[in-house]
């Protein structure tokens, strides 16, 4: 079965690339800067990397669903900005500093970005918008309107301090050295993300709906002649992708202390990282999550090195994820894109 072949083949490459990256970082670290690696890859670092990876994973899973079905949702970054912003608004108006308010914000953000995603899906599918241009539009709208509204609500593009969701600590198990902190003393949103990743893998490869999604992106006509409405499938995936990116933004907020609306906003390219993550993961939800973890790890490295008083400019270290993206895309250009991505589907003409 070639799907398995594909998967194993890809996994080998994924793991090897991740290993090479890690090794390179390790060698540079130890040789050039004389850094003790055990003090970098602490349990706290891995746990925080997972927190960082969660929003990217969610956006990536959403994006890959859309693209699998034939629609390139390049607006993930924009939806993430909206998600983070709406979560801040929701939490703020829920009025309090507890985890329950943070959760309210997450639910509110996901609901609202879903509504926006419906509008976006109508433009893409019903009105056959240029997917790339419209996606860029969503990004710019997010970059403009989120800080605009933030200024109106808080008098500043940044929000006041927001509560987080805390950690899900399993008594006893969390005492296990190393793993305890990573697995049993972890943000519930990381758990949620893992659940979404596994669930969306099963859905995509083991249910009839998953078959339809794959067929819609590869040969929509085949699906149509099998009696399934292609555009309905695509509506579902595009809306899902917007909702997941929105949830991702909300998770990002919950893992940070406040909404930041200056510059590229707090999302700061994570939506784009999400796209790269699913390309890197070859459209497989689990692969995408693994790639997101790589990006999360690279992202957190900056802080980790700083705590060790290693003198590398924060500004330059902060660019590491973007450089990794370019390296990954360049070494990974062979991803097979679904055959019908970007083409609107019409039944009769």
């Amino acid at each position: 079965m070639s799907v398995v072949e594909y998967a194993s083949h890809r996994r080998v490459r994924l793991v090897s690339l991740a290993a090479v990256t890690a090794l390179a970082v390790g060698v540079v670290a130890t040789v050039a800067f004389d850094i003790p690696l055990d003090r970098i890859f602490t349990a706290g670092y891995v746990a925080r990397s997972m927190e960082m990876a969660a929003p990217i994973s969610l956006a990536a899973i959403g994006g890959l669903y859309a693209e699998k079905s034939g629609v390139f949702n390049i607006g993930l970054e924009g939806f993430m900005i909206f998600g983070a912003f709406f979560a801040a608004v929701g939490t703020y108006f829920a009025g309090g500093g507890g985890a329950v308010h943070a959760w309210a914000g997450i639910v509110f953000a996901t609901a609202l970005t879903t509504v926006l995603a419906v509008l976006f899906a109508v433009l893409l599918i019903r009105y056959k918008a240029d997917q790339i241009v419209a996606g860029l539009g969503v990004w710019f709208i997010g970059l403009g309107l989120a800080p605009f509204t933030a200024s109106i609500i808080w008098g500043s593009r940044n929000s006041p301090r927001m509560p987080g969701v805390g950690r899900l600590t399993v008594p006893g198990l969390s005492e296990i050295p190393y793993l305890g902190r990573i697995v049993f003393d972890q943000s519930p949103l990381v758990w949620l993300t893992a659940l979404v990743a596994v669930g969306s893998w099963v859905f995509l490869y083991r249910t009839n709906y998953g078959y339809w999604i794959q067929a819609a992106g590869e040969n929509p006509e085949a699906l149509d002649t099998a009696g399934i409405d292609v555009n309905r499938v695509r509506y579902a995936t595009v809306i899902f992708s917007g909702a997941m990116a929105g949830l991702g933004g909300a998770v990002l907020l919950a893992h940070s202390s406040s909404f930041i609306g200056t510059g590229q906003t707090m999302v700061d390219g994570r939506g784009w990282l999400g796209i790269v993550a699913y390309l890197f993961g070859n459209y497989n939800p689990l692969g995408a999550a693994a790639a997101a973890l790589l990006f999360g790890g690279v992202d957190m490295l900056q802080g980790q090195l700083q705590t060790l008083n290693i003198d590398l400019s924060a500004k330059l270290l902060g660019l590491l994820p973007y450089i990794v993206v370019i390296v990954v895309l360049t070494g990974w250009g062979k991803t097979r894109v679904p055959a019908s991505v970007g083409e609107p589907y019409e039944t009769e003409e």
Partner: peptide
Amino acid sequence: VPVQLIDGIVGIVILFVAVPELFRM
């Protein structure tokens, strides 16, 4: 009025330009 609104308007312009079908209809 927070001026980020203008950036938002630019984004909306792009979004609409992407959908000529909307205006055609």
